[in-house]
Design a protein around this nucleic acid. Structure first.
Lengths: 223, 223
DNA sequence: TCTTTTATAATAGTATTACTATCATAAAGA
DNA sequence: TCTTTATGATAGTAATACTATTATAAAAGA
């Protein structure tokens, strides 16, 4: 069986849907490589255009600016993560096991999908860890938020909160705990690689460490 | 009694110590106002120069770039926060009470100090919440880190970890829990104001909410 | 098949940003 | 008093973040 999953990313994020053309697809795929390599601050449309043998003008017809392109990539990630959560929780009855699976997903690289969309999952993972907060820690977040561009993050948060509440219906902060799991999984992985004294992680195996830390935390919090 | 606390910020952060001149002090003070107002991305040395009736060239003689200036501000904050933690924990015997005081400090605005350094504490607090991760989520973090510019954050982390370990010597992740408290206090406050569906917070009183959430979390984790 | 639409490439151009360099002057230190 | 040093004034550069124009090629429609 070979199947492909597609997510319709909110139309407000792009000017023209990159999924419908070859340049568009290349644009997003190579953008992931470049943002990983250069960091978001040093990533520019000019460099991306050169890399895909196209022009800045063409990229601007797809995305208003590089912030929107990053948002597009993260929307794709959040959608895919929510899909994976739903998929992997199928037929799992044990509520504790469900939460364990969620932490496993949050702290490890995305599995390679069989579809054509061969985004580099290792790079995508690093971008989520290093750059994702930059899409909402901006002055005009309220304006941007009006276009529902953070809905996939909110949906993912709500989905995880659901499993939290199922495990412990009396727990008062399911959403906050949910975002704490997501953000902490990024922070701890980032710190363990780049600023290790801010964690108790060993240099190697930071995914495993973060998973252990969050499992311990989550089940102590939920009882 | 009127006393003033001074912190010697790591010399590698600045080119010339802003504390020793009037322009320098103005520079940092007004920078806090401007970064708050514009957000770090739209903050420029040109705008800052205009605001203090000086020139870009002068500011560049103090700070290599705006990233260093933000780092300077955050170093000051981290030093002050560690000082406050030490100060407020003086003569508190109860280990649980110590942790409660730490969370209170992490989730509320800095108290106004009596000294001359009249940085706007409300603005500084918002900058810490919104901009602080941007000083380390950069491609050259390893290079920057070599100059020990994150030492105050690490010291604050270690200090909090100390109280965590004192309360529960068997707990295996004191540093990771420490940074989780710090970062989560930023995240939850930011979300509650800007992306409320990512939290369980009411629109009002986000400091109080975050404090409650973290207290609940911390003592369940530590037992 | 011919025409029309549409996307892209090629190119040019602008305002702003992030700097670096030079020089005169004023203030501080020796 | 002489010298050092910080600042202000000014200029300039390369890169960034766009916008606009036109020619061409390919796809869609009649």
């Amino acid at each position: 069986m070979d199947f492909q999953v597609k997510f319709k990313v909110n139309e407000k994020i792009y000017l023209r849907d990159p999924e419908i053309s070859e340049v568009g697809k290349q644009m997003v795929k190579i953008a992931i490589d470049l943002i990983y390599e250069l960091g978001f601050e040093h990533f520019t449309f000019k460099k991306l255009a050169a890399e895909i043998n196209s022009t800045e003008a063409t990229i601007y017809r797809y995305f208003e600016n590089k912030h929107r392109l990053l948002l597009y990539i993260l929307n794709w990630y959040w959608c895919y993560m929510e899909f994976l959560v739903i998929f992997k929780l199928q037929n799992v009855a044990d509520k504790k096991e469900k939460l364990r699976i969620i932490i496993q997903l949050l702290t490890h690289e995305l599995p390679e999908s069989s579809g054509q969309l061969d985004y580099n999952k290792k790079y995508l993972n690093q971008i989520v860890i290093t750059e994702s907060s930059k899409v909402y820690l901006v002055k005009d977040v309220t304006e941007i938020n009006k276009n529902k561009v953070f809905k996939p993050y909110k949906d993912l948060c709500a989905k995880i909160a659901e499993s939290i509440s199922a495990y412990n219906p009396g727990y008062k902060f399911p959403r906050s705990l949910s975002t704490t799991l997501i953000e902490t999984s990024h922070d701890q992985q980032y710190f363990s690689i780049n600023l290790p004294r801010l964690t108790d992680a060993p240099a190697k195996n930071n995914s495993e460490f973060t998973s252990n830390f969050l499992n311990d935390l989550l089940f102590k919090v939920l009882g």
